[in-house]
Measured scan of single mutants.
Amino acid sequence: MDVFMKGLSKAKEGVVAAAEKTKQGVAEAAGKTKEGVLYVGSKTKEGVVHGVATVAEKTKEQVTNVGGAVVTGVTAVAQKTVEGAGSIAAATGFVKKDQLGKNEEGAPQEGILEDMPVDPDNEAYEMPSEEGYQDYEPEA
């Protein structure tokens, strides 16, 4: 019985440690998101679009440190934060509304985080759909 109880105690310690790591990862992701939003706020009209992409990228980098179902929630929060940063930029006159959601080359930025393969159960990952990809044929 002692062996059984000791095993359960060790398992509990492992769960607590994993929860603490997840909590730490979420806190880091939130900190990076805040950094990115402050970065966007300090940019001029020309830099705002690039700044919004930076927020998304920093958040995406930190999301990889967070495991399990938390990833889905962090990704949703990050996307809403990026959308909010863009709205703030438009409201303050840093950028025109028609410039939001495009990178410096004018290509749409939507789907940055949505296409990231995420499995809350950590069982399997699927690649994003290939609808947006084109076949590449090298020139002879």
Rank of each mutant, 00 (worst) to 15 (best):
V71P: 01
K96I: 03
K10C: 02
E57G: 03
P128Y: 02
E137P: 04
P128T: 05
K34H: 04
P117V: 11
G25S: 14
D115E: 12
K12F: 03
P108S: 10
S87E: 13
D135N: 12
Q24K: 15
N122M: 09
G68D: 14
A85I: 13
G31T: 14
A29T: 04
E20S: 02
D121L: 08
T75K: 09
V16S: 08
F4P: 00
S9D: 03
G86H: 11
Y125R: 06
Y39S: 05
T92D: 03
Q62I: 08
L113D: 13
K45R: 14
A17I: 05
A85H: 03
T64I: 13
G132P: 04
Q24P: 00
F4K: 00
Y136V: 07
E28D: 05
V26L: 08
A124G: 06
E46S: 09
G86P: 06
G51P: 01
E57N: 08
G47M: 07
G14L: 12
P138E: 04
Y125S: 07
A11E: 00
K96W: 15
G67I: 10
G7N: 10
A89L: 12
A124W: 12
G111V: 15
D121Y: 14
A91I: 06
E20L: 07
A91C: 06
P117S: 04
G7D: 00
P120S: 08
T33V: 14
I88L: 11
E104F: 13
N122Y: 08
V70M: 11
V48Y: 12
L8E: 00
M5R: 15
V48H: 00
P108Y: 11
G86A: 07
K80M: 10
T33W: 13
E130P: 10
L113K: 09
K43S: 03
T44V: 09
L100R: 07
A56P: 01
E131M: 03
L8F: 01
M127N: 09
Y39N: 03
K80Y: 06
L8A: 01
A76C: 09
I112G: 09
P120N: 08
K6S: 02
A11K: 00
K97H: 09
G41W: 07
G51V: 14
A19D: 00
E104Q: 07
V82C: 06
K96L: 11
V3F: 05
V77C: 13
E83M: 09
L38K: 06
V16F: 14
K45W: 15
N103I: 04
E104V: 11
S42G: 08
K21L: 11
T75Y: 11
G101R: 07
V63L: 10
E130A: 05
G93I: 09
A19T: 02
Y136G: 06
E131P: 09
K96N: 14
E139Q: 04
V3E: 00
E13S: 08
D98N: 14
V55G: 01
V55M: 13
P108T: 12
A27I: 14
Q62R: 10
M116Q: 15
V37G: 01
V118L: 09
K21M: 12
T72P: 02
K102A: 10
